[in-house]
Amino acid sequence: MRCEEIQDRFSAYLEDELEAAERRSIESHVEACVGCRQELALLRRTVSTLQSLEEIEVPPRLTAAIQAGVSAEGGSRWRHLVSRLFFPLHIKLPLEAMALLLVTLGAVYVYRSAPELAQAPLPQAVTERESRDKTTPIARGQRGDWQEQAARKRPAEKLRAHSKVEDEQKALGEADAVGRALRKGAPSASLEDVSPMPEMILKTKNPSQAASRVANIVKRLGGKLLEKKGEHQLILTIPASAYPEFLAALGELGEPMHPPAETLAKPSPEGAITFSFRLIP
């Protein structure tokens, strides 16, 4: 047999698995061949070194951890999930902490780079809208609770789409602005302060003529025509104390449409009311 074939049988020889004849054949070759004798000695020492490797001890914490895991049975699936999520601890915990940090930073970045997110209406606005849909405008006006409702809204000035929902959000935002102005009792509230503002609509036979008369009524009551937007839209401010008289005068000009004049405000003893006044035929 060649040296290579002899050496291929070394493991079996060391394991004492060979037939007597093959064993004698190998022994006689090794006795005569220095190279194979050396290789057999090296292999024998390799195996003996492996066999003499010292074992490590089982730390008590490992036994305790396994027993705790078994005791948590009944929550087998839970344990499996926990094991998958957190083990091995030294690998997964740092990864999970890093992932959490990245998600947080990402959320902050998106929030700060998109101002409309910060100014979007709160979910309760939808609830409020649904509530309003279930109530007739007149009934709402009779309750006189729009101030409290509007006060809870956040203005959504930047939302300019023309969908119905967005229009309603806009209306809510305008109501909020007036609510703030009324609560503050600020007669000098500028347009910027109260914009967007609520709008009163008056249906009248002759809008152009009525607009002129409304301006006169406002002036007579101590108020002011702040701005004239086109022929049929006025921006008005009047003392809150004069508000009932203003409503009474309007009744002679036409029919208040939306929102009803009664719901525009519950005048406080002091301060002024600023609003948009639109006239339609």
Partner: peptide, 10 residues
Amino acid sequence: AEDLTQEVFL
């Protein structure tokens, strides 16, 4: 090895 041993027994 300890982590894996725990997982193996569970």
